[in-house]
Nucleic acid binder design. Structure first.
Lengths: 191, 191
DNA sequence: GTGATTTCTTAACCAAAGTCAATCACCCGA
DNA sequence: TCGGGTGATTGACTTTGGTTAAGAAATCAC
């Protein structure tokens, strides 16, 4: 499996050979095409994954308009983890913005691994904890910053995102209308 | 330990006697007084806890004004879990709004338990997963609802909160100014 | 390359919430 | 009981972002 993904898990909890082999062998490599839906609203998400290549967005449809919750790139965690954990139907879509590929681990296989290997159970704890940190970061960000501040932060920390993603999707991710983002950009450029 | 708190952990992962005894014995009962700070900004949070009685708020100071992130009541989980996990200084205060008590488990003790008992490690995973679900709920709520909708939801789902907490703190929790909340209330009452 | 579609920008107008300031209502303690 | 303090409300005004509509720019398909 891709070294990047191994690095992710190693940073959480290095696994001895036996565990790693068992763990790794449960991943399947999947490919996707631009526009493809990896998960539809209404279905429970029964996998987690890690992107090898390509760009993916995580969004929901609210009152007829699309609200983007996240963009994912190579190396990123890929799942509706909430639906994955709760078993409830997803309120989000997962959709490819480009062609690409990812490594998929099905829920059932992961639960078996948790039961078989305490160290993988611990890895699961550390993964949940890491994801908790990520989502609280985003929450904090939304609570404490204005759209303009969020855009500036995106520019400085994640400029790759701005280059690869249409602006109206970025606007949605920032929680504003495309027109507002356009205004913000204009405001910033004339300073 | 309080039955409510046992019920919380039982709902995640029932523990056999040995594990439960070891787990329970690591909790300490703590009391607090109105206004007391259970955690100050700048310190790492080195415990998790569960409230036995009383009301607590979780807030940060941003540009000189207090922003309330959460209110906690009897039975609720109590920690800056983010700081607890990352070891980084807390950007939030934890402060008592009333007199009360809670059961505290120190980080060091929990980490030892994780190492000693795989089942408690699993309990930790399920706890992290549960907390993940709670924070994504809040995130969704903030992203997809207007302040007015959030207030109405609070009324229907958490009216206890509205009775026990000063309005200006509720406003802060909703992400608006006290004046705006006052106007929203007026708007709603004349419908 | 050309036409069509999609994306981005701009403008005018509107609604919601913020700010500032004044006032009201209530509680509590001396 | 009176006065002070806290919290809630109201009003005037400002700011910000949403909406609608139009047009410009970029991209795509043939």
């Amino acid at each position: 499996m891709k070294t990047r993904i191994k690095a992710f898990f190693d940073s959480l909890q290095p696994l001895p050979d036996t565990e790693w082999k068992a763990f790794e062998s449960c991943f399947e490599r999947m490919t996707f095409q631009k526009e493809e839906e990896l998960l539809s609203e209404g279905r429970a998400c029964d996998f987690i994954g890690f992107i090898e290549s390509g760009v993916i967005r995580f969004f929901q449809v609210k009152d007829g308009t699309e609200k983007v919750t996240a963009f994912w790139f190579s190396g990123d965690f890929l799942s509706n983890y909430r639906s994955f954990l709760s078993g409830q139907a997803s309120d989000h879509y997962i959709q490819a913005l480009t062609d690409g590929s990812y490594y998929r681990l099905k829920r059932e296989a992961l639960l078996k691994l948790y039961d078989q290997f305490p160290l993988i159970d611990r890895l699961g704890r550390l993964m949940a904890e890491r994801l908790y940190l990520m989502v609280t970061n985003r929450l904090d960000n939304l609570l404490s910053q204005t759209p303009e501040e969020r855009y500036m932060q995106l520019q400085s920390k994640n400029s790759k995102l701005l280059q690869e993603i249409p602006q109206y999707m970025v606007a949605s991710y920032l929680g504003i209308s495309p027109e507002s983002l356009s205004r913000i950009r204009k405001r910033l450029s004339t300073r």
